[in-house]
Nucleic acid binder design. Structure first.
Lengths: 149, 149
DNA sequence: ATCAATATTATTGTACACGATTATTTTGCT
DNA sequence: AGCAAAATAATCGTGTACAATAATATTGAT
């Protein structure tokens, strides 16, 4: 007497698909800048907080060095950021935005903003979904750290 | 006069993080079976629909052969599925569940079900979030195929 | 001051994801 | 029948993710 699991009734699957659609959406929106979505949110975090260590960027994005180190190297190669060992603490690598990144900031904001507003989603629904998803994320975090019973 | 973009106010970022948490959650839940989340949903689809071609599986999961071919080979190596060229249409590769997969089905359903119920989420909120996310997914799909204006 | 514990980044290995291309087979048009 | 167009998988290249490990630097307790 086991209840069958139907894929289309799974919240995880809805979120899995929506995340892929967002990726696709941002791939189009960011194409003029030749940025991927993870690269874009890395820049967003740096625009917001200024120069940070790799660790600190990782905390804002929930990513570790295994993901960020190669991603940062690509951003550096494409002239968006610079990476420099901290003189104060030689373990740290400080990541800073280049003049190019700073000068293109408003253009990115404007272009992405116009693409996003093309999604026909009311402010209220946006907020409702975001609150709900954030809550699910929190519940998952609690369920993961906690033993399952 | 460009409005700044704050990462934590972005719905895409909430969904991005929630998807990663689900991945983490299922990695724990599926550890006894040595399955990843994408492998798990592939089995779910096969449990639901029976033998299908790679193309058909791809349609149920929104994945293409570039992802599925190597994933299927791993599932085959681990004894979950068999792959066979269709006799009727030599272009197709039919994917079928093995006796192992069929015999473990209820065990997987039960174990995953108990893990999921450990997430403290009311039925109503579950439905509300899922409906909202599905709607966002649909709006994104419309925004992508449609030109941005 | 010493040295074990800790912190930070980089590296390695495995597994997706997906666009683009290739190889093979089937279908549809004449 | 003959052949261009379409369909299906596989392959290749690039870019995440993340666990585990390694390498180096810092801190803290004695």
């Amino acid at each position: 007497m086991v209840k069958p699991i139907h894929l289309d009734e799974q919240l995880c699957f809805s979120i899995y698909k929506a995340q892929k659609q967002f990726n696709h959406f941002y791939a189009q929106a960011l194409a003029p800048f030749k940025l991927t979505y993870p690269q874009y949110i890395t820049l967003l975090s740096l625009y917001e907080h200024g120069t940070m260590s790799v660790k600190e960027v990782g905390q804002t994005l929930a990513l570790d060095s295994g993901t960020l180190t190669p991603l940062m190297k690509r951003l550096e190669k494409d002239g968006w950021i610079t990476r420099k060992r901290s003189a104060v603490d030689e373990r740290r690598v400080d990541v800073s935005l280049t003049a190019k990144a700073l000068s293109l900031r408003d253009e990115i904001y404007e272009h992405v903003g116009s693409c996003v507003s093309a999604i026909d989603l009311s402010h209220d629904e946006f907020e409702a979904v975001k609150t709900g998803v954030d809550n699910v994320d929190a519940k998952l975090t609690a369920a993961i750290t906690q033993p399952t019973r």
